[in-house]
């Protein structure tokens, strides 16, 4: 009885929805315009940075950072936080840079005209691998150390 009542309510609601939404104003899915991509990307960077910060805090609070390999992983995560901040700034500067400043001009690689501080800043912030590669290496060093000394995986929380 309950089941029949439920399904009839659903049918009525569905019919009402069909009547309200004609083909001219069908808003079933949202349109994703041009700037959305960069917003999503920046938000993803923020999420990445926030979760890394939280992980670093948890490692510190639980005493893992006092252990050899974990200390290195903690440092690597710190570098990744810096990298995220660096890249968020880089992407913001990229948005400020006029499109005319970058051209391929028949060359294989794009050329940038360094005619403003924004252009200079863009070049500097493009070198983000100077942060993420060391970060990744520190994590590698930590994981390698833990793999070499089984005691570094604690049996219990510290």
């Amino acid at each position: 009885m309950m089941q029949i009542h439920k399904s009839s309510t659903t049918t009525i609601l569905f019919c009402c929805s069909l009547l309200c939404l004609t083909s001219t104003d069908a808003n079933a899915f949202q349109t994703h315009g041009n700037p959305e991509g960069i917003y999503v990307h920046q938000a993803a960077h923020l999420f990445f940075a926030a979760s890394c910060t939280l992980l670093h805090r948890q490692l510190q609070k639980s005493g893992f950072l006092d252990m050899d390999g974990w200390h290195s992983i903690g440092n690597g995560i710190f570098w990744l936080i810096l990298w995220n901040i660096w890249t968020i700034t880089g992407h913001t500067i990229e948005e400020l840079l006029p499109g005319a400043n970058i051209t391929t001009d028949g060359s294989h690689t794009p050329i940038i005209y360094l005619d403003s501080w924004v252009a200079w800043a863009y070049v500097v912030f493009k070198c983000d691998h100077l942060l993420c590669v060391p970060g990744m290496y520190l994590i590698y060093k930590g994981v390698k150390k833990i793999a070499a000394s089984p005691d570094l995986i604690p049996r219990f929380p510290l």
Binding site: A44, F47, F48, S51, Q58, F156
Partner: peptide, 30 residues
């Protein structure tokens, strides 16, 4: 490529957040 890159950030951030749960599981196990 950019979209995949953004998704990869979400993946690594989600996995990173999971450490708290792992730690809680370890505390409960203890």
């Amino acid at each position: 490529s950019g979209a995949i890159n953004s998704i990869s950030f979400i993946i690594i951030a989600s996995v990173t957040l999971f450490f708290g749960n792992i730690y809680d599981i370890m505390v409960q196990m203890l």
